[in-house]
Design a binder for these strands. Structure first.
Lengths: 318, 318
DNA sequence: CCCCTAATACTCAAATTGAGCATTAGTCCC
DNA sequence: GGGACTAATGCTCAATTTGAGTATTAGGGG
């Protein structure tokens, strides 16, 4: 052909699984350059993106995916950064990356070893509001946020994003919050991208960045994924693609709470869940609770139908 | 490089504007081969997809876009079909198309001439349930649907998708319905794609296809867009990107109804809308109503804030 | 058998929906 | 100028759906 630069399609996957404690992510890369599992799309070999994603995640990590859904296609010049193991790309190529979310139900021990898993709140400490300890992350960055919010427009954005001044916290606005922190220079990626575009930069301002960074724009992709999952849990029964086959209602609630980063009102959670018809009790009981034994439930047949709705999230008081 | 086929990124845009009657689409192509505005992405010239979309829609149709949002990236081999005006692609290339939704507020007359606009229900007659006339479209295809639904699994899918047997109609499941009709062979694209993959096909079965077809997989992209818009209207105030600057509540309701294809309860619509704080009354009145003059409203400042919520849709009874 | 811990059951009030009925302010027509 | 007509607005009421607690209950461990 001609000198037209090639377009390379990269695929990145946010692979989420529920461990006992909460949502965990499958990561790849080496210490200091951690990122999402990433592969490039082969226009000949792969018939669909989804098959390609399943393929490279399995071959890179040995982990087989369950539910898979396309997230977003990132094509901005400037925020992507070439990733080492991406294959034979050159500077002249344009990399477009299609992000996917994949859910894997509770990790089987054998599979667990097949990759590096990490609690996703390592990268977004301010997103975990289940405990006062988690809330502290937000307090810690407030001074810097306030310093940045010099105009009323910015102040109002901060208030909306972080649920300040009477605004309510919206658990699914993960991307808004991340982008705001990026603009405010509170996440390390912001400094890195600026340095890159300015040539070799002035020394990084001495500042405590919030959360651990990821390679390229992977933390942004991850924020998009978290937001999408948290929103989707309300209108599609995807939570069951993450939960084990049989679970107690408390286990399910813990999982939802971990995913959404908020505490729910226990009795009301049960009530809406039972009323929704999404779960049905197996006869069996689960005894290792420390208190009264709990009934084990499974997802119902109706929860599998296309168009089944999701969970309501009855927030608990402060 | 080598003989690797190029990847071509196509961009297609579902451009929606509200005319007096309802949502209209910007189309391009010649009679018999109508499709969405479509352009290819230039890896050198375009910094972001969004800019590229704005660019080619404007240059193809002279129409300037307002709100723009990425929809989905379609990359399946087999359902895309080369589009004539796509540029210098060859058979060996792999076309990946990124779909966008764009909203343009009520059409200015001068701009209107700049492209071909059509009521989107031409392509999805069954999606308009505002009148009994619209409902007839569904009745007409029921025999064929029933003929296809040979298994209980299929029957249940039909019932869920089309709100039969006590199931409720979900206005945003446009894609589910379209895909089901595609599988059932009721839309012309299904026949066309089968013919293509089987080589020169048997003569098309004599059957009345439902809705007008579009080039390539553009009707599928459109279904995705409609579903997304209908869903999004509930949790983001995007309706105001479609409505004129000043409107009466009835006009706004008509617009929402046209978009969602359902009738709403008028008094309750007003109530939730006023309570939501998304609109505020300008002092002015609008007299040409035929009845009592109506107050003119505008979107409020809070409706512009990131994170503002959308409308509730109080359905009217049968 | 008593204590401790969760799970499960119930209760009650506040807020949100679903459905109508009632009023009102213009236009059109004698 | 008065009455008919047509939407826009206002209000009411009951049925649900939330939000928040208080009360029971069934195991495990001394």
């Amino acid at each position: 052909m001609n000198a037209t630069p090639r377009v390379i399609i990269g695929l990145s996957a946010v692979v989420v699984a529920a461990s006992g404690k909460g949502p965990e992510l499958l990561l790849s890369g080496s210490p200091g350059a951690i990122g999402l599992p990433f592969g490039s799309f082969d226009p000949i070999g792969h018939r669909t993106f989804e098959l390609a994603v399943r393929d490279f995640v399995t071959s890179q990590t040995g982990f087989a995916l369950g539910y898979v859904e396309q997230l977003y296609t990132f094509g901005d010049k400037g925020r992507e950064a070439p990733v080492a193991d991406m294959g034979q790309s050159s500077d002249a190529d344009r990399v477009v990356s299609v992000g996917y979310i994949a859910l894997a139900s509770s990790i089987v021990e054998g599979q667990r070893r097949a990759g590096v898993w990490a609690d996703w709140y390592r990268f977004f400490p301010w997103e975990d509001r289940r405990s006062t300890a988690g809330m502290r992350a937000l307090d810690l960055m407030m001074p810097d946020l306030n310093a940045w919010a010099t105009t009323t427009e910015r102040q109002s954005r901060v208030a909306m994003a972080f649920g300040l001044h009477g605004q309510s916290w919206q658990e699914s606005q993960v991307l808004d919050r991340f982008e705001l922190l990026y603009e405010a220079g509170l996440v390390q990626e912001a400094q890195r991208d600026r340095a890159k575009s300015k040539g070799s930069a002035a020394p990084a301002p001495e500042r405590a960045y919030v959360g651990e960074p990821l390679v390229s724009d992977h933390r942004r992709i991850l924020a998009t994924a978290m937001g999408r999952l948290r929103a989707k849990i309300r209108y599609r029964p995807i939570i069951f693609d993450l939960a084990p086959v049989r679970f107690t209602l408390s286990e399910l609630q813990d999982l939802v709470e971990a995913l959404c980063g908020v505490k729910l009102h226990k009795q009301n959670f049960r009530r809406t869940l039972e009323r929704s018809g999404l779960v049905e009790s197996t006869g069996a009981m689960h005894g290792e609770t420390g208190g009264r034994p709990a009934m084990l439930f499974t997802r119902s047949a109706t929860s599998r139908q296309a168009g089944a709705s999701g969970l309501s999230l009855p927030l608990a008081k402060r």
